[in-house]
Nucleic acid binder design. Structure first.
Lengths: 339, 339
DNA sequence: GTGAAAGCGCTAACAC
DNA sequence: GTGTTAGCGCTTTCAC
């Protein structure tokens, strides 16, 4: 049987579609009696508003898309898990898209024909795309970019203070008495801005402590995965003077580094202390558990969605702002050992 | 400026909306000259069809939803990555939802009011929901369930032959000369059907080889995560007679088990060989790399989407079938050692 | 407070 | 092959 429509409800209740619409949407004032009649009819017919029709009429799709580089990277998966409920609560459905961190693919959705009718806004977690690329997008599409940036634009950034967080991580290591500290994850090229902020914090902590920075201890990696961490750690251990601590640019990198350390017979943290970044679940349950910088993912999600919704509802162009979410350092076994 | 509509294009090209629609959708035959005029007008106006309106008119949303228990479980993330492009190719957008493997939440989307206008069909990867629960759903919603099942119903199942795959895994271990083989991941309760099929294969391999099954070597775990594997392995190693091989019900479990083994000074595979299930990327790059049962995720994705699309397009009720995707055993370092 | 009616932008009979 | 036209189901301006 065909689904009941608003008109069916109106007929049954003996009122006009207008009134039913008012009741359904809680608009305007509807006389008590009328409301009850309508509600009864709705119940009897099992009426469900047709979202599609509503959207056509309002010109909104009620959907936002979240684009992440990789769906199977724990950090992004966890972020997505935080974003979805927040968006739902605001009445938005979340479309997830993966860019493969590939410049070829990133941008596909942004430039996709007909996207306008498909989603009302986008939360974008860039990787392959540089700041530059983003400016060339459809300026009419409300956009919030994840990851702290500094430039001005007609879209927003939401992220934690990477430099400060990285500085804290390294200070934690220094506070533990470590002096030869390595960094794994640098990406000294245009699309590696996030990595570069961490390197900046790494240096800042050294400077603040009056320690020299040994540039040869800063190891670059193509991505932030386990393999990258494992490989980089191998390199580090092959040196005549291996480090006594490592600041990894992601927990995955830290996990990889720890793996190499343990396999090679080093004790963590006794011989080498390791701290990561992201606070992914894997790190919490690993042995040793991984000390980390924990971005407040819930706050990131909330800020991003709220800001995006605001943009969507705004008729005026909104200047881009930089929103900063909180973070905290969580010391676990990989730096402070077992309790 | 307002977006151009189909009518604008028609006016500019001097044809009727019908013709424009035909051109846009590649329907029917359109005279060459007419087509060119229309295409020119489309280009000039930068016309983009409004997907929403199209869907309202056709009664289809063009979206399918894929529900997985956990977004941050590598296996599901990889499956999703396989499904998305296939669906796109068929003209569907993919909505991703997470059920938390929680019976409270699973079913929320299924029973959600107005879902009918939001998505045309659903691919469901159950965990907390038993076969039973699924039958109570809206029978009008085209549904394909992931994971092999045996019962008849008005929806389909797509999965690999778990029992056969598990048997092969254990036979591989037996072929390596192992005799005390443990299994980690059993879930002997209604919602643990997938686990039970693996246990069944575990037993079958023993029987086929004329080997006795030591039930005390079958360890149950609440989930299929690293922690579960690590903990179970601890238990196994605390025995007077630890196993010389372990069949883990997921690669994550295998990774956890290997972690415990290595930490405790056991060599993998020399002392204990380990094989997993799922072929997730983490296992491929781990040290030692993890031998595994690799489900053909691409085929699973293809079968699931194709079947779902068929269901969506079918006017008649379609009987549920069981579709079987391929799998293969990949022997890596955790069972055969380094090359 | 509620009704009538005009769309939102597209599709798809039904004609010609 | 192409035009006409009536919806898809809802929102919303305009009257009353």
């Amino acid at each position: 049987m065909r689904d009941a429509t608003l008109r069916d409800v109106a007929d049954l209740a003996g009122v006009s579609p207008r009134t039913v619409s008012n009741v359904v949407n809680g608009y305007a004032k509807v006389a008590q009696g009328t409301r009850e009649k309508v509600e009864l009819a709705i119940a009897q017919l099992g009426y469900r508003p047709n979202v599609l029709a509503r959207h056509l009429a309002t010109g909104r799709s009620g959907q936002i898309v979240v684009v992440v580089p990789y769906l199977d990277t724990p950090y992004f998966a966890e972020l997505l898990q935080a974003i979805i409920p927040v968006a739902r609560r605001q009445g938005y459905n979340v479309l997830i898209d993966q860019s493969d961190g590939d410049r070829e693919h990133e941008g596909e959705l942004i430039g996709r024909p007909s996207h306008r009718s498909f989603f009302d806004g986008m939360i974008y977690s860039p990787l392959g795309l540089s700041q530059q690329d983003l400016s060339g997008r459809d300026p009419a599409l409300p956009l919030v970019v994840l990851g702290e940036r500094t430039s001005e634009a007609n879209f927003d950034h939401v992220g934690i203070d990477d430099v400060a967080a990285s500085t804290e991580a390294v200070q934690h290591l220094i506070g533990l008495g470590r002096r030869r500290i390595a960094a794994i994850g640098d990406q000294p090229y245009p699309t590696g801005e996030a990595a570069q902020r961490r390197t900046k914090g790494f240096r800042a902590a050294h400077v603040a402590a009056g320690l020299p920075v040994d540039d040869s201890l800063i190891i670059g990696t193509p991505r932030f995965n386990r393999v990258d961490g494992a490989t980089a750690m191998e390199t580090l251990l092959d040196r005549a003077d291996p480090p006594d601590a490592v600041f990894c640019y992601s927990d995955l990198v830290a996990l990889g580094a720890i793996h190499t350390l343990v396999s090679r017979g080093f004790r963590v943290p006794e011989d080498v202390a390791v701290i990561g970044y992201d606070d992914i679940e894997d790190g919490r349950y690993a042995l040793p558990s991984v000390s980390t910088i924990a971005p407040d993912k819930t706050e990131i999600a909330r800020l991003a969605v709220e800001r995006l919704v605001m943009r969507i509802n705004s008729t005026e162009p909104v200047p881009g702002v930089d929103l900063r979410a909180g973070h905290r350092l969580i010391a676990r076994q990989s730096t402070v050992g077992s309790a």
